[in-house]
Amino acid sequence: MRVAIVHEWLVTRGGSEKVLEQMLEIWPEADLFSVIDCYSDSDRAHIGGRRAKTTFIQQLPRAARLYQKYLPLMPFAIEQLDLSSYDLVISSSHAVSKGVITGPNQLHICYIHSPIRYAWDMQHQYLSEAGLDKGISGWAARLILHKIRQWDARSSLGVDSFVANSHYIARRVNKVYRREATVIYPPVSIDAFECSEEKDDFYLTASRLVPYKKIPAIVEAFAKMPCRRLVVIGDGPEFEKAKAHVTPNITLMGYQPFGVLQDHMRRAKAFVFNAEEDFGIVPVEAQACGTPVIAFGSGGARETVIGDGSRRATGLFYAAQTPDAIIDAVDRFESLPVPIDSRACRHNAERFSAERFRQSFHAYCEHRYAEFVESCSVMAQD
């Protein structure tokens, strides 16, 4: 069985790239394809030094920095990859990689992180944040996204099986493509984090400071709670906006290396998470450290955090991404009659280990391929 693995783009190492790494652990002999490959040497080490076979976008000016600007060309580019010699094609997709062309004697399984967010239900938010919600440029952007939606829906027909990274994304797949998706949670490096039952008197949030993470709302909430300390780890375009709300009880640390992040995760009283994520790796990492999570109750967090109505609670939820809702949630956390058990947090996090992902995804693909071969054989006899 010849296996091809198709990834979106290799530029920085994020959550989807960590999924790719585990896929390459399962199929070390697989060939790797990507729209572009601009990995640094340190990031490339995580995929065994491999270099992906790329599209013509790799040769366009400043592709490493401007690759997102080339999104309108990506559907055409991904269709130019020749995968005709492979038996099993696995795409890791949150944009265009599921659009590769395969034939009737090839099985295409898509591990989908999300349908293209900025083309579907997040279009209006994306256009507003990009300053493309008005004028001629705004209408041009809307037309491009309209065309991408059409292509995205059509290309979903070429996928034989979808595997979603959460039930939340499975519902989105059904909404957009009218397809069912099996859920296999993505891998989290649980073993890289140590559990601690000893907690200091501060709250923590950590992420890239981009608009949808809603970090300034967390900072604003704690600015209204001067007796409660907050530490913020991360950098990004919202840093200055968050900084504008800082009071003496709040520390903005900016970007920090992994060792500093893990140390704060282990010692924090609780981790505050205000994003609506498809899955959300950071809350699982916090729980791996034995740290409860106070989370906005939507998206993947609903599947990775056990709310305070359970005896096995690992955190609690709030209903709106606003400072007032966060303040109320922190007050409820402080008033819990029984503190959340750090060991319960760790135990819950272990459901998302890399080993479990490898076992589940490998078994699923093997089973689907066996079914596919059998069905092809029956049709050939007929």
Rank of each mutant, 00 (worst) to 15 (best):
Pro323Cys: 08
Glu197Cys: 10
Val89Gln: 12
Thr314Arg: 05
Asp331Gly: 03
Lys147Pro: 00
Phe372Val: 08
Gly297Trp: 09
Ile215Ala: 04
Val159Asn: 11
Ile326Pro: 11
Val35Cys: 10
Gly14Cys: 05
Ile218Phe: 01
Ala329Met: 06
Ala275Gly: 07
Glu198Ile: 06
Lys224Thr: 01
Leu204Tyr: 10
Tyr203Thr: 09
Ala164Thr: 13
Tyr86Leu: 08
Lys269Asp: 07
Ile294Asn: 09
Val188Trp: 05
Asn174Lys: 15
His7Ile: 00
Ser166Glu: 08
Gln256Leu: 06
Tyr86Ile: 07
Phe193Ser: 11
Asp328Arg: 15
Phe372Arg: 10
Ala170Phe: 03
Arg142Ala: 01
Val232Arg: 07
Cys38Asn: 15
Phe317Leu: 06
Ala119Glu: 14
Ile326Asp: 13
Glu303Leu: 09
Phe271Cys: 09
Leu107Phe: 01
Ala217Phe: 08
Val19Pro: 07
Leu71Gly: 03
Asn105Ile: 00
Val305Tyr: 10
Ala354Gly: 12
Ile233Ala: 12
Trp9Glu: 10
Pro216Ala: 11
Gln150Tyr: 01
His7Trp: 00
Arg343Ile: 09
Lys269Gln: 14
Arg351Glu: 04
His46Val: 08
Ala344Cys: 14
Phe352Gly: 11
Leu336Cys: 08
Ile340Lys: 09
Thr251Met: 07
Ala170Pro: 05
Ile215Pro: 03
Phe56Tyr: 15
Asp152His: 01
Val272Lys: 08
Asp331Ile: 02
Lys224Asp: 06
Lys213Gly: 02
Asp324Glu: 15
Cys365Gln: 01
Ser196Glu: 10
